[in-house]
Design a protein around this nucleic acid. Structure first.
Ligand SMILES: [Zn+2]
Length: 152
DNA sequence: CGATTTTGACCTGCGC
DNA sequence: GCGCAGGTCAAAATCG
């Protein structure tokens, strides 16, 4: 299912490792528009590739358990953004995503699409932003970690 | 027929 | 407290 995943993207594993130490929340904030080009992490062509990077179990802060009735907002730690160059409109990473919204961000004619993993028990979210000006660039942001090994 | 997309409305956090 | 911007819901429509 990685057939369409050819373009310059980053291996999830690699990103995971880095994310642990990097404040992705901050990065994402700056990622928006304009500063994305200056984002080293997204620029660096980590070509670890979709080969076979076995051991990778980063992310040790999946959720914040609350003992009250309030929900702690999980900040960072579970967000991964990728910028890939692709002409394809559909970026399929092998999981089944269900689109649940789209939004037009201000100060940009771009459209942002919101997806959610349709696997039961897995609430991973994904956000894909297409670039109209740079039609070849797409920003993909993953939110959360899949708790199921199976794709689809 | 069930799953998914579509789309505007709705909710929420933040800044003023 | 209000308004904006971004994020999510949900009903109807659509797809396979
Ligand atoms: Zn999942």
């Amino acid at each position: 299912m990685f057939s369409s995943f050819e373009p310059t993207c980053f291996s999830l594993d690699t990103i995971d490792d880095q994310t642990c130490d990097f404040d992705f929340g901050d990065i994402l904030d700056n990622l928006e528009f304009g500063t994305k080009e200056q984002n080293p992490i997204f620029q660096e062509p980590i070509t670890t590739g979709s080969t076979s990077k076995s051991s990778h179990n980063a992310i040790s802060v999946p959720l914040m358990q609350v003992d009250g009735s309030k929900r702690e907002t999980v900040h960072a730690k579970t967000k991964f953004a990728f910028r890939m160059e692709t002409k394809l409109e559909v970026i399929d990473d092998g999981y089944k995503w269900r689109k649940y919204g789209k939004k037009k961000v201000k100060s940009s004619p771009h459209l942002r699409n919101y997806f959610k993993c349709s696997t039961i028990g897995c609430n991973v979210k994904k956000r894909i932003e297409r670039d109209m000006e740079d039609a070849n660039y797409v920003i993909t942001t993953y939110d959360g970690i899949h708790n199921h090994k199976d794709f689809s």
